[in-house]
Amino acid sequence: MHATNISASDRAWDGSYKHRRPQRFLRVAPDSPTRLLRTAQQSRCSDCGNHIEWYDRTAGHNPVPLHPHELPAADVPPHQRWHVDTGIAHPSGDGSPWCRVRHRALCPATPAEPTSSSTMDALRRSLALTSRRLQDTGHFTPRPPSCADPPTQDTAAPEARPVVQLLCLRYLAPGPLAHIPCVAQTRARNRCPHPVLDPDALPGIWVLAPLHHDHEPGHLPFAELWLALYDLTHLPYSEQLRWRAQRCTAHATAPDAADIARTTWEPFNPRTHHQHIRHHLPASPHSARQGRR
Rank of each mutant, 00 (worst) to 15 (best):
F222S: 13
F222V: 11
A223S: 12
A223M: 12
E224D: 13
E224F: 08
L227S: 03
L229M: 05
L232Q: 03
L232T: 03
T233K: 07
T233I: 10
H234A: 10
H234Q: 06
Y237I: 12
Y237N: 14
S238K: 08
Q240R: 00
R242C: 00
A245T: 12
Q246M: 14
Q246F: 06
R247I: 03
R247W: 00
T249D: 03
T249R: 13
T249C: 06
A250H: 12
A250I: 14
H251N: 01
T253R: 14
T253I: 10
T253A: 14
P255N: 01
P255F: 05
D256E: 13
D256N: 08
A257M: 06
A257Q: 12
D259I: 03
I260C: 08
A261G: 01
A261Y: 02
R262N: 11
R262L: 15
T263K: 06
E266W: 10
F268W: 15
F268N: 09
N269S: 15
N269L: 13
N269I: 08
N269P: 04
R271T: 11
T272I: 14
T272Y: 14
H273A: 07
H273S: 05
H274G: 07
H274M: 11
Q275Y: 09
Q275P: 04
R278M: 07
H279N: 13
H279Q: 01
H280T: 12
H280D: 09
P282A: 05
P282V: 05
S284A: 15
H286E: 07
S287W: 04
